[in-house]
Design a binder for these strands. Sequence first.
DNA 1: TTGTAAGCGTTATCAT
DNA 2: ATGATAACGCTTACAA
Lengths: 345, 345
Amino acid sequence: MVSIKDVARIAGVSDKTVSRVVNGEANVHPDTQEKVERAIAELNYVPNLSARLVRTNRSHSIGIMTDLVSTTPYSGDIVRGVQDWAKAAGRTVLITNTGGDPEEERRAWRTFQEHRIDGVIYTTMAHREVAIHEEMLPLPTVLVNCSSEADPKVPAIVPNDYAGSVTLTEMLLSLGHRRIGYVRLNPALKAAHLRLAGFRDVMKRHNLAVAEGLILDGMFGPVGQDTNVSYESTLALLSQAERPTAIIAGNDEIALQVYCGVLSSGLRVPNDVSIVGFDDFQTVSRGLRPQLTTAALPYYTLGFEGARLLEAVLTGKAVSGKREIDCPLVFRQSAGAPGGGERKA
Amino acid sequence: MVSIKDVARIAGVSDKTVSRVVNGEANVHPDTQEKVERAIAELNYVPNLSARLVRTNRSHSIGIMTDLVSTTPYSGDIVRGVQDWAKAAGRTVLITNTGGDPEEERRAWRTFQEHRIDGVIYTTMAHREVAIHEEMLPLPTVLVNCSSEADPKVPAIVPNDYAGSVTLTEMLLSLGHRRIGYVRLNPALKAAHLRLAGFRDVMKRHNLAVAEGLILDGMFGPVGQDTNVSYESTLALLSQAERPTAIIAGNDEIALQVYCGVLSSGLRVPNDVSIVGFDDFQTVSRGLRPQLTTAALPYYTLGFEGARLLEAVLTGKAVSGKREIDCPLVFRQSAGAPGGGERKA
DNA sequence: TTGTAAGCGTTATCAT
DNA sequence: ATGATAACGCTTACAA
């Protein structure tokens, strides 16, 4: 590999002068500069960041630690958000996937330390609680899509599932819906409770009773290998004496089965039943016909803001605690006034 | 940061002895070994990989370069596959996302070189052709989910879209289907042609004519911002004088709209119309009711095998050319014999 | 404006 | 089995 010395030799200057040029330091004669640049180009010299790190002790790298990447399809956008910020900040990104295994996590932290990473983005693919363990302590860490009640000081960025659900429910009420069915997320997920609470609170605020028979299970079991009974729950909702005019699905995946249930019952969306989801999982939400009204889980923003937060931590700004990011309403064609238009199946 | 010297001092030995222990070299007295290990634990010493790299010139890191991560939801599994192999091989993974921008790509290659990466996994989120540019040359590279006709020597791993499509079509024929509709992928994708060719070839081999009216557009336009007209195409297929008994969707995203079209026409899947997709994009394929029969795009395997291939390249084994990975049939409930069972809507 | 010498944390070489 | 010394590619401190 060609080193700074080779360049120096070819350019007929000292190593230090080459170093100056490479780092854009002041006080280099234009002629010298050009000589050096020519030599660099000729030799195809690329500085060795490791050598630099040994001396300066600043790696300009951050690490991303992920758990179960594949279960939540678009959550990879978190990583993209982190990368985009890192790119802008001139940082390199190391990535490790632990599958949520504590032993793997330990290994990952060690690897990060071996590389003298500046800081870590610890991100989970589903919004959840995590425990801060002592391996984390030596490295500045920001939690993304997760938070720790036990250590509320650790900086964290999470989506505001509650507010998103409030918005969706308010929207349905303002369209005129009063009898609304709800097909629940896997209760193992934090989002399940936050979203359901948003729904319940809005209904209560409007003095609307929520019959418990209108709140049914959608998914349950171990996250990632959930059992999905949303289709059956939908059929159950539709067979009630007084049919709901709208159904809120815990997420878009559930909404998909709600569609299947509604359509195969010969009903129209949204004329007979309005449907809303959550996540804006685009392949589903934009793929369905009619397209799905939903609240967008801001994965990319979580990653980007998480990285920005980490940068703040690294530059010594005191940051701590949890920050919530909005889940904006995405209004499409699956929600309309109850009763719908004139067209009927 | 605590260095090898600190450990040596505490343990009362030389740096080199500590180094020996850390690297598990032979010829260390058990007593010495223990002393050193205690000192390491006490000081919480973590070796500095950069310093090691400066000396040894082997980084034990590989880079992953991705283009548009977010457009194809599960394609992140490629990255997971690469990581799993890397983990097993004791390698660190650097990742950069270029968004497909050539300027970003150039920067990424430079960053990789600055880190003295051992090799690169160059992966695209949709199966396509890529051009090998000269920045790639200095670094051993394996293409994953893409290949280069211009440089057929570059090792590449791609899915066998053609064979997957053949399998799906054969399966439908063996169920008794003769009149099969086809809703096409975006022709900008390589997979579109391979999959359609698989279908056509099987039909021809069985001496079955394919009316061009049965092959309709599903998606078109710039990849990632495609216009999806699969719903309308499905309605068009269903309104033909002689209705197809099965519909092949170019992928699961298209299959979703085929479902919407079929169900909202009051028809049953698979009793009235069998539907098959491609990709096994699980949120859709397992989320639909009935669940979707499809061919699995082996993203994880592509990544894993790609990394294994890179490892082979790095250890000097001569590898070159394209390798194809099977897309296994995943049989679920959306495909059945034409006419179906007794149940009818 | 440029160069020299020393040092970062590690490993390689060669002695002991 | 262990250690002294040099070296890797670079930057820092200082001198010229």
